[in-house]
């Protein structure tokens, strides 16, 4: 009988999990705790900075994009902006949107900032760099030029860099608020002794990490661990009820 319940459950839930995240785990694991290349970046016409200048102040979330992107870049940034609006983390960070396309000029980046309505937001910095190849290499990010489409073939990548200039975590693809929270904690060196691998489409997982509290919060699977006790107690109550009420005494 229980098997049937499980299967019903599987069916009911399958639609919900159908559009689950499918990022490959391996790229996210590369170059972790390696120092990011200290590239010079241009933030405005007369402001030349380096990565160290920025990350010394606050940890960085680095988004690598290009302005002429017809694909993932825009939805990626929009989603990032939206998710960050709902994160009121006490942990400091700056979002650095950097172009990996050498053709992009500072003006293109400013235009992008305006389009997103972020030109006056102090948390966001839009910049270009001359040393994109070395920077990409230190991250393990390799966009490919597709001459047919005149577009870069690339992942939506968000890189976490802590104040010491080390890459602490990477997120590939458009990810939800929880993953973003985890990224923000990681750049602030908040240690969590474990994390789940992405791309595991498993129904009844026990716990999902909640970076807000730094703890895992119970997932659907947790119910299954509480269920035996609940069942046993209900059985106790119902048997007691039945024998004392339904059956004639003695």
């Amino acid at each position: 009988m229980f098997k049937n319940i499980v299967f019903t459950f599987v069916t009911i839930n399958s639609w919900f999990f159908a559009n689950a995240q499918t990022a490959s785990g391996i790229e996210e694991e590369t170059n972790i705790y390696e120092r990011i290349y200290n590239a010079p970046i241009r933030v405005s016409r007369n402001q030349q900075l380096t990565f160290t200048d920025l990350n010394n102040k606050k940890p960085l979330l680095l988004a690598l994009i290009f302005t002429k992107c017809a694909g993932v870049c825009n939805p990626f940034l929009l989603q990032l902006k939206e998710n960050l609006q709902f994160i009121n983390s006490d942990n400091p960070f700056t979002i650095l949107v950097l172009s990996f396309d050498p053709r992009d000029r500072l003006g293109d980046m400013n235009l992008l900032a305006q389009k997103l309505g972020l030109e006056n937001n102090k948390k966001w910095i839009f910049a270009v760099t001359d040393s994109i190849a070395l920077l990409n290499q230190s991250i393990g990010f390799y966009p490919r030029w597709d001459s047919v489409r005149s577009q870069y073939d690339h992942d939506a990548l968000l890189v976490g860099i802590n104040k010491e200039g080390y890459i602490t975590k990477k997120l590939i693809g458009i990810r939800d608020k929880l993953d973003l929270d985890l990224l923000i904690s990681s750049v602030n060196n908040i240690y969590s002794p474990t994390y789940r691998l992405p791309n595991k489409n498993i129904l009844f997982s026990c716990f999902n990490y909640d970076p807000k509290t730094g703890k895992n919060r119970p997932g659907l699977g947790w119910l299954f661990i509480a269920l035996p006790a609940v069942l046993a107690m209900s059985l106790l109550l119902s048997i007691s009820f039945i024998v004392h009420n339904k059956l004639p005494a003695e």
């Binding site: 240690y191 969590s192 002794p193 474990t194 994390y195 789940r196 691998l197 595991k200």
Partner: peptide, 8 residues
């Protein structure tokens, strides 16, 4: 399987 445990 499915989890990464970080041992320091």
């Amino acid at each position: 399987p499915g989890y990464v445990n970080r041992l320091r």
